[in-house]
Write a protein that binds this DNA or RNA. Structure first.
Length: 318
DNA sequence: TTGTGTTTTATTGCCTCC
DNA sequence: GGAGGCAATAAAACACAA
């Protein structure tokens, strides 16, 4: 073990109460195992608990509460002040391995001190030990354990917050999925209508100019719409077109029909060559709404990069 | 009364800081 | 290298249902 000094009981703690399961009364159990420069000088273990005592020994250093017999009273009891001193003497000296809990008022005092500052400076440790009639080491241990409990509570709170956030995100994601399905069916419906329209137009006028939808076969559109990764595919198609500088597939608005543009911004849309989706047209080198369209995939596409299923899009702090 | 789960007190070992 | 903090853990004390 690293350098650690023991005031009593010699070496590490095979004979100490607690981890070692050994014996040893307060001279072991309540002893500063570590010697610190500030508070764990050898006399620390014999810390005087009350202002009226210059030295009262280990008995008065501990002021435990035994809830079973309801003993209570001042923090600063001494042997002389005990009502049933002999019995408690037996408790302390003949059952050396027993731990005693701090009294409720001692705990309350420590809690208030912890509220103001959860770290313990040596001076404050000494002061608290004086006021409570405990050893500085006990104060330090109490604060240490209290910090651990506080941390656990904080983690629980953080977990709850994250859980709530996750639930909200999940709900949003499910809403977006529903919305996406709805939009899909709308796109499919409109594509059908347009194709029908083009077909009728084609039969009546076979020499008309090519429709921008001509490359799109209806079954192809349907296939693409059913594609799980359709939005990503759409984006890929757009990117490849942009890289090729090929804008011939972009759906150009019929300039003669201004009312259509005003009513539904149809002219700001184009049909993707691969999936047949209508998407916002590029403006200033950016897709104004494409990021928003794809955002759900980036965050919640439910697939790993290798394509495997990954339904656990939640995040856990541990 | 007893078995069992939880809380509290304390130890141990490791780590960081000065 | 010493002092102190923290995580892990032990064990006593406590709570409570059966």
């Amino acid at each position: 073990m690293a350098a650690r000094s023991y005031l009593y009981g010699g070496d590490s703690g095979s004979d100490a109460v607690g981890g070692g399961g050994g014996s040893g009364f307060s001279s072991v159990m309540l002893t500063n195992k570590r010697v610190s420069s500030s508070s764990s000088k050898p006399l620390d273990s014999f810390f005087v608990s009350g202002s009226s005592h210059s030295f009262v020994g280990s008995r008065s250093m501990v002021s435990f509460e035994d809830k079973r017999n309801g003993s209570s009273g001042s923090f600063f009891r001494t042997f002389d002040q005990e009502d049933n001193g002999d019995d408690e003497y037996d408790d302390y000296f003949h059952h050396p391995e027993k731990k005693r809990r701090l009294k409720a008022d001692q705990v309350q005092f420590l809690e208030k001190s912890f509220e103001t500052e959860n770290k313990l400076e040596p001076e404050r440790k000494i002061q608290l030990a004086k006021e409570l009639g405990l050893q500085p080491r006990q104060i330090a241990i109490w604060f240490q354990n209290r910090r651990a409990r506080w941390k656990t509570k904080q983690l629980e709170k953080d977990y709850d917050v994250l859980q709530e956030s996750y639930n909200q995100l999940k709900a949003n994601y499910e809403n977006l999925l529903q919305e996406k399905e709805k939009l899909k069916s709308e796109v499919l419906d409109l594509s059908d209508k347009l194709l029908l329209q083009e077909t009728e137009k084609g039969t009546s006028d076979s020499s008309s100019t090519k429709s921008p939808f001509e490359p799109l076969q209806q079954e192809h559109v349907a296939d693409c719409v059913n594609d799980e990764d359709v939005t990503k595919t759409s984006n890929d198609g757009i990117q490849s077109l942009l890289e090729r500088g090929d804008s011939s597939y972009l759906f150009e608005q019929d300039q003669s029909d201004e009312s259509l543009d005003e009513e539904d911004n149809f002219g700001k849309m184009f049909v993707t060559p691969v999936s047949g989706y209508m998407l916002p047209k590029i403006e200033n080198g950016e897709y104004p709404e494409l990021d928003a369209v794809n955002s759900c995939y980036l965050g919640f596409n439910g697939h790993d990069q290798d394509g495997s299923e990954d339904q656990s899009f939640g995040f856990w702090p541990y």
